[in-house]
Design a protein around this nucleic acid. Sequence first.
DNA 1: GTTCTTGCAAACCCTTTGCACGTCT
DNA 2: AGACGTGCAAAGGGTTTGCAAGAAC
Lengths: 155, 155
Amino acid sequence: MANNADVEQLAHQFAEFLKKKKYRNTQERNKVIERIAELDEHFNADELYLYMNAKGDKVSRATIYSTLDLLTQCHILMKHRFQGESAHFELASRMPNHDHLICVECGRIVEFREKSIDAISVSVSKEFGFKRIRHSLQVFAVCHDPTSCEHNTQD
Amino acid sequence: MANNADVEQLAHQFAEFLKKKKYRNTQERNKVIERIAELDEHFNADELYLYMNAKGDKVSRATIYSTLDLLTQCHILMKHRFQGESAHFELASRMPNHDHLICVECGRIVEFREKSIDAISVSVSKEFGFKRIRHSLQVFAVCHDPTSCEHNTQD
DNA sequence: GTTCTTGCAAACCCTTTGCACGTCT
DNA sequence: AGACGTGCAAAGGGTTTGCAAGAAC
């Protein structure tokens, strides 16, 4: 939980977005982006809510959800949905164009980059006359680490 | 809604699964598989429930959910989760190993087969010491058909 | 001062569950 | 007969929403 990805740069990017859309630049929204920059891992709305509460920030769940939505709109965050779980978010800048390898036994998620998938998704889109925006590839598998598979749920 | 994929073969496959697992072969479960064989498209639990009700079958939502789960377990159905929507199902035999191209404007879903993705998912799994089970690739894009994009939500 | 955002709790959707009744073996 | 499956309605988790109070512009 100590990444400190360019908070300034993120805050700036967010402020620009808000201005362009004529949304207000509130304290809560700024707190959210500060805290998000501290996170290294995927997180969901409730984890962020609890994290911020633990840090003494007083931001409601409703605001968390609404701000996460804004941050996804302006591509600061990527929103993922693994299996039947709650939505997970992560900084788009953290590891561009990666996909996920998910252990169906222990829930562990490994990130990987495989550039050919990008090219494939572009060519498939073109083939059907679509304009590609992004893709999401999830590979479900079983990891080989029995200890993790027995004890962990999302490590 | 008129495919009539091998109902017999599906029913047989399901019956075998039930027997092996010592689950009971009930009227409701059989009705479900019959109706599913009639469906050409993806569907969700509620759509199936309404479809069956319209056809005069009296099967509760609880049973629909439980039966869809069994059918997924024995690989007769594939279960997908697109975006933030409800779970969608489709016959696995309908189009093996395909992935989805999704228009973010109109929601239209195009299926495509691109065999190289399978190979990639296997080699990535191996690289991390995982044993691949399956993958799910969703390509988000904008389709070029303005009419559809304006009026439809899931066509 | 007006409009947008917040916070709270209630509503919401999809899915699962508890329990009494019915059905399969 | 006994165990399991069903149907109903209620509960559950995650997310959204309505409304009154508060902050941004």
